[in-house]
């Protein structure tokens, strides 16, 4: 479904992503784990089109999208829940969801919203509330719901557990699994490696802009090096 080949991304003179290649197949949950600054978010933002690679290609559904503007990628079914949620704080919950459906010209926004409300009943209660007044967990739900409004084929999530209480993290991850069961392929970037490996099928381990390990998520969570570096022993 998604193929990234030999991606090199720079921030000015800083070489942030060094020749990363990865693949996501339909129906999978794939995770990129690694320490802060390993290049996980940069990779994701290059796939979604917010950043441009210096070299390398991104192919989605068999077509190259490396030079496609970000807003066109959404129309093709590639959505991203950005790091730090980045919901529109001054708009209402419902307006945020409407913005999520922006690429679905003329589509039925109401039925999309119903689906999001089934997944996150909390958002329905708060749909007229200004998004900035929501709690952190609710904001994460809104960010996820907003991305689902574009009916993505591949949903990329950047650090969905960031800044949330453990109970909320559990909830968010079980929703991710639920979304995947409903047919959305998932590419997940996480610092909480333990959680990420527990829901993912496959994983890539990033270190200073390079993939240092990859494979079955269960096997990786049993790997001594991974345990030592990312799972706290």
């Amino acid at each position: 479904m998604l193929t990234v080949t030999d991606l090199n991304v720079y921030y000015g003179a800083i070489h942030a992503v060094k020749g990363i290649s990865l693949e996501v197949n339909e129906g999978e949950i794939v995770t990129l784990i690694g320490a802060n600054g390993a290049g996980k978010s940069t990779t994701l933002q290059t796939i979604s089109g917010l950043l441009r690679p210096r070299t390398g290609t991104v192919t989605f559904l068999g077509e190259p999208i490396t030079n496609l503007p970000a807003h066109k990628r959404v129309e093709r079914g590639l959505a991203q829940v950005p790091e730090g949620r980045r919901i529109f704080l001054s708009m209402t919950v419902a307006e945020n969801l409407e913005m999520g459906a922006y690429s679905q010209r003329g589509a039925d926004t109401a039925s999309g919203m119903e689906q999001v409300f089934t997944l996150f009943p909390r958002l329905q209660e708060r749909r007229k509330q200004i998004a900035g007044t929501l709690s952190g967990g609710e904001q994460q739900m809104l960010a996820m719901g907003r991305s689902l409004m574009s009916r993505p084929k591949l949903l990329m999530l950047d650090e969905p557990s960031m800044g949330l209480a453990p109970i909320l993290v559990e909830q968010i991850f079980s929703t991710i699994v639920e979304m995947n069961r409903a047919g959305t392929t998932i590419l997940l970037v996480e610092q909480n490696a333990q959680m990420a490996l527990s829901v993912a099928g496959r994983a890539y381990v990033l270190e200073t802009g390079q993939i240092v390990m990859q494979g079955n998520a269960r096997e990786l969570s049993g790997n001594e090096e991974v345990k030592k570096a990312y799972l706290g022993g």
Partner: peptide, 15 residues
């Protein structure tokens, strides 16, 4: 309004 608040996030919505 969405663009005024966050251009990156707006792009990710397909705007």
């Amino acid at each position: 309004r969405a663009c005024s608040e966050d251009k990156g996030a707006a792009q990710l919505m397909g705007i």
